[in-house]
Design a protein around this nucleic acid. Structure first.
Lengths: 127, 127
DNA sequence: AAATAAAACGCAACTGTGTTGCATTAATAA
DNA sequence: TTATTAATGCAACACAGTTGCGTTTTATTT
């Protein structure tokens, strides 16, 4: 089986994401890491971290992808990241509103595996 | 002021989107239109149609962008496309679940302008 | 502590999506 | 019919993400 290893690149990138209170894009991570490793390595590390369920992917309204750490309660069931993300049009920061979980009623026979809820507008700081 | 014109490209593209029961990407539209016009023109026509509020943009979970026609009831207030989109992992079709409007309660002082709700998993046809 | 296996990396090259500038064409109004 | 300018085509560019491959590094085994 394929095991995963702890490398300096992985550790650094995870620290950056964990210490950020907003979701970060690949490019932002690259800048914040002071080019500690190759562009490609960042992509591969991010994929690994998502696979290990340590961070999660957020699709922004313009199609750009951001990453944020998962500080969810690791209870029994397999969890989903079904909270809302807010993307501010002015400061361009993407924040996880961890406590806001929308409710909805699907028609029968839909099996949901992944979820992405993103709002955009003005955040409290920019209003 | 800047007026908008009806061209064959615009008409064709709008017809394609209107007659499709799933959301379409730029590339899919290009294929369906039998290369009636340049790649770039399609991008510009789509932008125009979104601006005219005839079609709307959907951001898929992989970051790809799709377009679907707006058959919303044109009531008084300015509307938002706050229905859920479902992206099937098997057949890769994206459908608008027009009747499914999620409810959620935001913290104070957030001003929402745009909304994107996308689920992925298996649609009824692929279950 | 040294040897080993393979996970992770760097580099270069490539692909796909979306954008921009500019000269030309065509839709609408006069 | 003519004039105005929106819309188009083309070429070139920008950027995000991917792939292949040879090299380095991690972590396990001897």
């Amino acid at each position: 089986m394929k095991t995963t290893r702890n490398t300096t690149a992985k550790t650094t990138i995870l620290e950056i994401i964990k210490h950020s209170d907003v979701a970060l894009s690949h490019t932002e991570i690259q800048t914040l890491s002071n080019n500690i490793c190759d562009r490609v390595t960042i992509y591969r590390v991010l994929d690994r971290l998502v696979g290990e369920d340590v961070i999660h992917k957020i699709v922004n309204l313009d199609g750009t992808i951001k990453y944020a750490s998962c500080h969810h309660v690791h209870n029994d069931a397999e969890h989903t990241h079904n909270h809302i993300h807010f993307s501010c049009e002015k400061c361009h920061l993407v924040t996880c509103l961890e406590n806001v979980e929308p409710t909805f009623k699907l028609p029968p026979n839909y099996q949901v595996k992944e979820v992405n809820f993103t709002l955009s507008g003005f955040c409290p700081n920019c209003l």
